[in-house]
Amino acid sequence: MTEHTGLPVAGYRSQSEAKIAAVNENKKVEEGILRLLDALAELPDVDRRWLATGRTHIEQGFMAINRAIFQPERVKLDGDEV
């Protein structure tokens, strides 16, 4: 199984093809839901405040799921013991 190098960002690490595929699938599902919400936003009788709240929670949910898959590490700061 191929490991893909993580982003050059502190806390990110290499990821397997399976994990990348899972997150990419999640991103497709999320995009479909966000497009549904975009369509709902065009309706005149939709409460935009609640729609925005729901959208935020959905986005946060997908971020949490993807974080569960990628498992970024905590970052060491200057002065931390090695």
Rank of each mutant, 00 (worst) to 15 (best):
M1V: 08
M1Q: 07
M1S: 13
M1G: 15
E3P: 00
E3K: 12
H4F: 15
T5L: 12
T5A: 14
P8W: 08
P8N: 13
V9P: 03
V9H: 05
A10L: 12
A10I: 02
A10V: 05
G11N: 01
G11D: 03
Y12I: 07
Y12S: 07
Y12M: 12
Y12Q: 08
R13L: 10
S14A: 15
S14L: 04
Q15E: 11
S16M: 07
S16L: 08
S16A: 06
E17L: 13
E17P: 00
K19E: 15
K19I: 04
I20W: 04
A21N: 15
A22T: 13
A22I: 08
A22V: 08
V23C: 03
V23D: 00
E25H: 13
N26H: 14
K28I: 08
K28C: 03
V29C: 01
E31N: 13
G32Y: 04
G32D: 11
G32L: 07
G32T: 03
I33D: 02
I33Q: 05
L34K: 05
L34M: 15
L36S: 10
L36E: 10
D38E: 09
L40S: 09
A41T: 01
E42F: 03
L43C: 04
L43I: 01
P44L: 02
P44F: 07
D45P: 00
V46Q: 08
V46W: 10
D47N: 14
D47T: 05
R48F: 08
R48Q: 15
W50I: 07
W50K: 10
W50P: 00
L51N: 01
A52C: 00
A52P: 01
R55P: 01
E59N: 10
E59V: 15
F62Y: 15
F62W: 05
M63F: 13
I65F: 06
N66P: 02
N66M: 06
R67K: 13
R67P: 00
A68N: 12
I69C: 02
F70M: 11
P72V: 05
P72Q: 02
E73C: 09
E73K: 10
V75F: 07
V75P: 00
K76M: 13
D78T: 12
D78N: 11
E81F: 12
V82E: 12
V82N: 09
V82Q: 07
V82T: 06
